[in-house]
Amino acid sequence: MALRFEDTLSYTLTVSEKINKEQLHIPTMLIQPYVKNALKHRLLHRKTGRKLPITFTNESDKTITCYIEDNGVGRER
């Protein structure tokens, strides 16, 4: 990724402490399309300061929420 984004991509992966990481398994293909979309269609067109925070939280005992944010160019491009 660093070669494609010329070392200007900063990403973080945060998992809530309430989530048992040993017991939880999320198939990668559930999250991957959204991360790829943020990278390819939004962040690739930004020249500097690219940020991609990914956060997993549990809103309730039966729900895990994944927030994928970016500071890309959006639809203006």
Rank of each mutant, 00 (worst) to 15 (best):
F56Q: 01
T63P: 05
E76T: 09
S60Q: 02
R50G: 02
L13C: 08
T55I: 15
F5T: 12
T63R: 14
M29P: 01
E22C: 04
E6H: 10
D70I: 07
E6F: 04
T63G: 03
P33Y: 00
G74S: 11
T8E: 14
R50F: 05
N71T: 02
Q23Y: 10
R75W: 09
T14H: 04
S60L: 07
S16A: 06
M1Y: 00
T28R: 06
E59V: 05
L13Q: 05
V35H: 12
K21L: 00
N58Q: 13
R46S: 12
A2M: 12
R4F: 04
D70E: 01
A2V: 11
H45K: 11
G74V: 02
N37V: 04
Q32W: 02
M1G: 05
R75I: 13
Q32I: 01
L24M: 13
R77E: 05
I31H: 05
Q23F: 12
R75N: 08
Q32D: 08
I19M: 09
M1N: 03
L43Q: 11
K40C: 06
R4L: 14
Y34I: 00
K40R: 06
T55F: 01
K21A: 14
T14M: 02
H45S: 11
D7Q: 09
T55E: 03
I54S: 00
C66S: 09
I54E: 15
G72S: 11
D70V: 13
L9Q: 03
N37Y: 02
A2K: 02
R77Q: 04
L39Y: 04
T48N: 15
P33K: 01
K62N: 07
E6N: 15
E76C: 15
V15K: 07
D61R: 14
Y34T: 09
R42C: 10
K47N: 10
I31P: 00
G74T: 00
V15S: 10
L52Y: 12
E76M: 01
L30M: 11
I19R: 05
A38M: 07
T28N: 11
N58A: 03
K36V: 12
R46M: 13
R75P: 10
N71R: 04
T63A: 11
K36L: 10
I54M: 14
G72V: 08
K47W: 01
K47L: 08
E6A: 13
L44Q: 07
T55Y: 00
I64V: 15
I68T: 10
P33W: 10
T63L: 14
K40G: 07
G74D: 06
L43D: 08
T65C: 09
I68Y: 06
V73D: 10
N58T: 09
L43A: 07
K36E: 04
L44G: 09
R75T: 08
H41P: 04
R4Q: 04
L44N: 03
T48C: 12
E59K: 12
H45C: 14
V35N: 02
L44A: 10
K40W: 15
M29E: 10
Q23L: 15
H25T: 15
K18H: 02
T55G: 00
I54R: 13
Y11G: 09
T14S: 07
M29K: 06
L24V: 13
K18M: 03
A38K: 11
H25P: 03
T28F: 02
N58D: 05
S60W: 13
